[in-house]
Amino acid sequence: MTATTKVLRKPRRTLAEQSYLLEVVKGLGVTLKHFFKGTGQLVSGNKPSPVTDPYADGCATLEYPDEKRPYAQRWRGVHRLTHRDDGSPRCVACLCCSTACPAQCIYIKPAEYPEGDKRRGYERYPEEFVIDELRCIFCGFCVEACPCDAIRMDTGVHMTAFDLRSDFVYDKDQLMSHVGQDGTQKSANTRHEPGDPTHPGITRLHGGH
């Protein structure tokens, strides 16, 4: 196959284009067209729905908190801490997420379960779990790093705006109150509860161990 050469001529401006005036008028025409279309849609009230018809001509604004587009499952929103069956946090305060976090926005204070708790000695738990959502860059590394599927970003909620910086600092209770897009607060971690004498489920069958 022989190489073909296509000669492209450098586009030259015509006198009309060079004078700029005509082009300005043309440009104004384009924007005016949009202006009248948009105004018409807004005044008559039949603007296309950005949820069902996002690529329609005319106004494309999605009024976010009132109108929402469905998100992909892997879309990363505000964090949540998943629950165990008894409602305590899945998190074992391993600090993997705070280690992985490039923005260093996660602070965890690990603690031992109190005397008498069946998990004492087996696991630890986060006495404090704080995420500074202002610092967070929503990279999802914390979710990747978590060995227990305890932290997730599948809430489908955007970071909201607050008046105070302190409002962006989410504590453990706040993070545990968030619900996933599927409506549950559970995680996919089926590891049995430590200290449980029945030890239901040999989970390592499908684990890599």
């Binding site: 000695g121 087996y122 430590p194 030890h199 040999i202 390592r204 069958l205």
Partner: peptide
């Protein structure tokens, strides 16, 4: 290598306090 044993591992005491300094 992956672990080939499919049985529940043996469970032993955890969090035993040996003294003021060691668990």
């Amino acid at each position: 290598t992956t672990k080939r044993m499919r049985d529940e591992p043996v469970h032993k005491p955890k969090g035993v306090v040996f003294g003021d300094t060691i668990v």
